[in-house]
Write a protein that binds this DNA or RNA. Sequence first.
DNA 1: GATGAATGAGGTTTCATTCAT
DNA 2: CATGAATGAAACCTCATTCAT
Lengths: 204, 204, 204, 204
Amino acid sequence: MAKIIDRKEKRVRILMAALKVFAEKGISSATIREIAEEANIGKGTIYEYFKSKDDIIFSAFSFFIEESKISISRIKSLTDSPEEKLKKALLFFREIVKEEGMQTFEIMFDFWAMGIKEKKYRSDFYKYLKDFYSGYRNVFANIIREGQVKGVFKEDISPENAGAMIIGMLDGLMVQWILDGKNVNYGIIVKTMGEIIISGLKEE
Amino acid sequence: MAKIIDRKEKRVRILMAALKVFAEKGISSATIREIAEEANIGKGTIYEYFKSKDDIIFSAFSFFIEESKISISRIKSLTDSPEEKLKKALLFFREIVKEEGMQTFEIMFDFWAMGIKEKKYRSDFYKYLKDFYSGYRNVFANIIREGQVKGVFKEDISPENAGAMIIGMLDGLMVQWILDGKNVNYGIIVKTMGEIIISGLKEE
Amino acid sequence: MAKIIDRKEKRVRILMAALKVFAEKGISSATIREIAEEANIGKGTIYEYFKSKDDIIFSAFSFFIEESKISISRIKSLTDSPEEKLKKALLFFREIVKEEGMQTFEIMFDFWAMGIKEKKYRSDFYKYLKDFYSGYRNVFANIIREGQVKGVFKEDISPENAGAMIIGMLDGLMVQWILDGKNVNYGIIVKTMGEIIISGLKEE
Amino acid sequence: MAKIIDRKEKRVRILMAALKVFAEKGISSATIREIAEEANIGKGTIYEYFKSKDDIIFSAFSFFIEESKISISRIKSLTDSPEEKLKKALLFFREIVKEEGMQTFEIMFDFWAMGIKEKKYRSDFYKYLKDFYSGYRNVFANIIREGQVKGVFKEDISPENAGAMIIGMLDGLMVQWILDGKNVNYGIIVKTMGEIIISGLKEE
DNA sequence: GATGAATGAGGTTTCATTCAT
DNA sequence: CATGAATGAAACCTCATTCAT
């Protein structure tokens, strides 16, 4: 049994090393040697745990997505009013950005690019990414739906579309923030965004 | 007399071939041979027009950005009321997406990833991308500022931040649309988004 | 456990293969593939031991020089009279030439040419070559100085200059011998040379 | 007729450009483009005058040798006593070195290396180089022979060998002077050398 | 005759993967 | 199991040579 745990631990160690190197060098520029060094193991050992570099890429990607899902549950457990919940959920994203720093999100770019380009990954990546985004979309869609049920948000808005919009906005802002942190203040804009959206959603 | 050749035209031809291959394979997976084949020229000829693959990448990128700038002027020339202008500008983006198809936007992912990862490009990429985004941000910021001056939009909102938010949203939605076109209808969401935002921006 | 390999030994094996190929084809015409084949290893293996072709060139050069230095000590340990020592030292060069054959010296040409041409190597090559020549110069300079102290050689001659002259002569003769072995008999000329020089050096 | 002279002039222009580039970059690193630029003509034009790069190399080499032969006649025309002639001939070499500078001699290294390595040139190069050296050898051999006839130089020395020795010395010293100009003063050593040799040659 | 655009053979170098220890 | 030495396919890039103008 101990052995099996060891194996799992080492697999995770390699995946985390891979994610770090991917973030630093980009997925296709990252080398097995660099990943092995980062994980403090021999180059050959990697192949005891993964079939190929492709296998590492995809495993690292799903590991990354899986890790992110944990965050969602934290938002779901909120118990405030829909309006307050929406504000807190947005605030929550600000915190993630602060905590995780840019690196975590920078990897995402590469996975996107990878998922889009490489035909061999495409379907698998898409499945994961779709789940990833739809998970977050639903968080917001549910809050809005709750608000509509409680009569505080307009009835004629599709909760799913509004969710997509909010996630898109958070996502898109990140890009601008990464590229131009001086002129784009993520925290403040998310706050402004919260005000505009809530104001736009509220039943008059 | 030597062969008379429009060097500029051929340069552009190579860049367009490069962009196509980049879109298909990803920047770092694309090979010089593939670009040459796409451009219907010999491998060596590429090097008569560009110093290195890096040179091609950066040249293709700035060519791509430069092409995009043309679109901005089309929005700027609108002469409606701020509210109407905002709606039309958003609609305009829907059209671009329809016209250009995903490919054009897919390349952007890679350039982002490239600009973020490769230290050697970073500063140059950032300069271009910053200009690119701030250009679009300003288009919306100006519309909102005009609305504030005319008293139709709330005074307490930063036009720049609102601009960043709108661009971010359009950008972020694109990602979801590309990944999950079935569940994310770009056109409809942009329309919903327009309604929410305008409603949220309007002076009560 | 990994394969146990004497990395140093293999490095030397590659350097010797490189020197052989350099001698046959010339330094800049020699290819990595040829060196690998000569060393009976894969092309890629070379790069496990050397950073680049430049690295091989310079390492081979310093290896070559280092090997040559061993010869000097053999001359230094002679214990005859200055006149006899001079004769024996010259004879010793004849022997080296016979033993080593032309090849060893032919390589030297290329290293010279290399050191002179390639700016990147220049300073390092020069340092080594200077040491190499000044080592040999000093061998003869010391013999002559000893002769002056013992009163058998003229006082008004600079031992360093005479050393340079003798080494130059041996060197220059080699060139002619290599090019025109039929008309230039290295052994006999060195003997003649010894007589003329000793006769010219001796106190009347 | 004018046309033919033009062709010859251009050929020489190309050869001189080639020699300059060879001296700067080394023969096998020199490119046709560089030679064409140095000669201020188009790259393609070179091939109107020479079949290949090899053709240029060999033509440049024989042009170089031919040019050098002119110097020999200047020494031959001296009309002093053998001893004085020998001194003057050595002085003459010092002057050449000063005039021509290192560059001219640096090329020689490469031609040697080339002639030795490249089997395809070998026999032709050798023929030329042999002539070149034997030409200079004979200059000195003749002076010494004259001295023997006149009874001022020892009878038991082979004039040819002594000539080879002197040329070798001048040649070999050049190498040391180029590599280590600070410690090896060409002019002074040649003077010392003259004294030693004349003293060694003279009938007691 | 003169030119330089075009080319591909062949060079150097990288790196995922294998495999003996 | 773990390792890293070994490898060759394939990448980038150079450059002698050809050829249309």
